[in-house]
Design a protein around this nucleic acid. Structure first.
Lengths: 128, 128, 128, 128
DNA sequence: GTGGTCTAGACCACA
DNA sequence: GTGGTCTAGACCACG
């Protein structure tokens, strides 16, 4: 799996990593149970520090996306993804809210906004 | 207009301020040309540092939402909101992407996601 | 509040820190809403690295014991402690189980074990 | 005797092994003097590394739970279990302390905690 | 001055 | 060789 980082971005590297791995799972490029590269190898591959990758993995583990298996190393959770909890819905709305507000301000029609969300959804889904 | 801050949030206060003012404009509670409180008074009203309010206003000015006059004070841009530029579209997609990916991972149907976006859109729009 | 670390212990320093702060809260020496020392000052006080303290605070934050307030710094959660969730009960049993088993093996009577737990409970509670 | 391992747990496998064997003795499923499987066979049975089983057995031997004979193989100590030493009491208190503290923090009544310990005690004891 | 992030380098426990 | 822990030192965002 290819990781694309923007080192200039104000989004922390570990967050970019988390997002890309989640997108990898969403797109099906990373299957349930599939092994992920070790902290060290991924770190050297993408040219960041070991601890940065470690932090990303730690977050993914806590949120229930991956497991750290004592024998197989790091793997995508083989059973299932984290469920849609009330906390998740809240977080999702909190994140979407300013995006929607900004779109409204700039005069973007609701239909266009929905179309964009749908487009992104398909972009991610069709990447197999 | 009422500002609701979450001081425990990992979202910086100035960003929360920016978001809430943008939502205020989106909802119509803040009209084009309408005056905003001065840096000093807003800061004391909501109990945050002068710098924090200043930073929020500066960002809003740079993005074209408000104007800062030496004499008239701070007002919502009287003419128009910033347009939908290619840069805006890019930023918007960049922000939406991880949200959509996470929704897919957790098994949220595309229709439900779209419905949520639509709900948020209406929540913001119908506010007075 | 006095922190006692055992640098020779196989228990990680950040875990010892977490435990001692939790005990501080349990004993009432740390009140709800009370401020904790900054990462840096605590680190230099007890002679460990800043990151070690940071990790302890991060865990306490995630578990709901403390809050990182953008203005007041780090404080004990002013509202309440984390509740007794099913996950907590499970974890608690998982931790108690080997301790109880070992006590049985060595011939400790159930009554004595219960008395020891009760003693520890009072030791912690009466420290005000 | 059935061994249940959790390979995702943060508890080392050898520790899980030690705990389960001790619980086996505590429950009476493993009698004094009863033979245990060889390192090799146990390792292949439960699918872990030889070193892991070896480490578990070594610890159990050091603590006085089992004996390792060149010819007879591994057996539960035929004479007696290790006694209640001051060191054991200290270790036990050290382990119980953070568990009790956490229970207090979360508002668990002392009676409930004692009841849980008692329950676990009976769960282990009544197993055959 | 605070916490957050990142890097570099080291040692250890684990399997 | 893996992840886990700890240290040291640095820069930045925030208020």
């Amino acid at each position: 799996m290819i990781i694309q980082l923007d080192l200039q971005s104000d989004v922390p590297i570990y967050t970019q990593l988390v997002n890309q791995i989640i997108e990898g799972i969403a797109s099906g490029r990373l299957q349930l149970g599939e092994p992920l590269p070790s902290v060290r190898s991924l770190a050297s591959d993408i040219g960041v520090n070991l601890h940065t990758v470690n932090k990303a993995y730690t977050i993914l583990k806590q949120e229930g996306y991956i497991q750290v298996h004592r024998q197989k190393g790091v793997v995508v959770d083989p059973v299932a993804m984290p469920p849609i909890t009330p906390e998740f819905r809240e977080k999702q709305r909190r994140e979407l809210r300013p995006i929607v507000a900004e779109a409204i301000c700039r005069g973007m029609e609701k239909e266009e906004l929905l179309r964009i969300v749908e487009e992104i959804h398909q972009e991610i889904s069709r990447k197999e």
